[in-house]
Amino acid sequence: MKTLHLLRHAKSSQDESGLEDRERGLTARGEQDAPRMGAALADELEPMVIVVSAARRAQLTLEGLCAGWPGLGDLEHRTEGALYTFDGDNLQDWLRTQAGAGDSLFLIGHNPAFTDLINQLVGEKAIDNLPTAGYARLQLDIDDWPKLWPGCGTLERVIRPKEL
């Protein structure tokens, strides 16, 4: 069994004219939600290495998560350009390249890719939308990441910032 943790980046700013999409920052709400989500996850999980999209809003979400989750900031997290995608199929392809990555992966990235990936791995529409700063945990019935297939997952947990 493998565990996949997904956190969509916190609410991003649309008002930063002249910036490329991957350079957008967070809104005030995003800056508040990321540490709150970190605190909530700290109650459920041990700190773990996170693989994060190269987009600025994802990087800032990780910083906020670390602020709310003791011990998380002490780890060396990894930036992965391939996670800057909006396509669930691209994420599946990337996950299949993670042979030997361990029993658990935690990703910070984007929608609609995360919502699509969740539904693909569960094999049905399990979630309408993973909101900004929303978290989802899936249990995957595989013994290595290259064996990932649609329908191999069970959605175990969803946390939405408005529930905190």
Rank of each mutant, 00 (worst) to 15 (best):
E46L: 10
G88N: 03
R78H: 09
L72G: 01
G18P: 08
R22G: 08
L62P: 00
G73M: 09
R29Q: 06
C66M: 12
G18Y: 04
L91D: 04
L75T: 11
G81K: 14
I50N: 09
L91T: 04
M48G: 12
T27P: 01
T61A: 01
S13N: 09
M48C: 12
G25S: 05
D87L: 06
A54G: 14
D43C: 02
Q32E: 15
E20D: 12
M48D: 14
G71H: 10
L83F: 04
G25Q: 04
G64P: 01
S13F: 06
A39H: 11
R22T: 03
A55D: 04
G38W: 08
R56A: 10
E44S: 10
A39N: 12
M48Y: 08
P47K: 10
D21M: 02
N90D: 15
E16D: 15
E76W: 07
D33G: 01
T85D: 07
V51Y: 15
E76T: 14
P35A: 02
K11I: 07
E46T: 12
L41M: 13
E16T: 07
G71Q: 07
G68C: 02
P47L: 07
H77Q: 10
S12A: 08
G25I: 01
L60W: 10
A58Q: 06
A67Y: 09
A28S: 00
A58I: 03
R57W: 08
E31K: 12
P35H: 10
L60K: 10
Q92T: 05
A55R: 02
E80W: 08
A67C: 07
Q59E: 12
D33M: 03
A42S: 13
E16R: 04
G30K: 02
R56M: 11
A34F: 03
R56Y: 14
R78Y: 08
F86G: 00
L19C: 01
E44Q: 10
S13R: 01
R78E: 15
L60N: 05
S53K: 04
S12Y: 03
L72F: 11
G30L: 06
E76H: 14
E63R: 09
E44W: 13
F86R: 14
R36G: 00
E16K: 01
E63G: 00
D43K: 11
D21G: 06
L19E: 02
M37T: 06
M37K: 03
L26R: 02
L62E: 02
G81V: 08
H77C: 02
P47C: 03
S53F: 14
Q92H: 07
A34W: 10
D33L: 01
T61N: 03
L83S: 00
L83D: 00
E80Q: 09
G18R: 05
A34Y: 09
T61C: 03
D15A: 10
L65G: 06
A39V: 06
R56E: 14
Q59K: 14
D93Y: 05
R36C: 03
T79R: 13
R24F: 01
A10W: 11
L45R: 13
G30W: 12
E31V: 08
M37F: 07
D33C: 00
Y84M: 00
L60M: 14
N90F: 10
A54N: 14
C66S: 12
C66F: 09
S12R: 02
A34Q: 05
P47H: 05
G81H: 12
V49F: 04
A10K: 00
E63K: 10
A82K: 13
T85L: 07
A58R: 04
R56H: 15
A42D: 12
H77Y: 07
L75R: 15
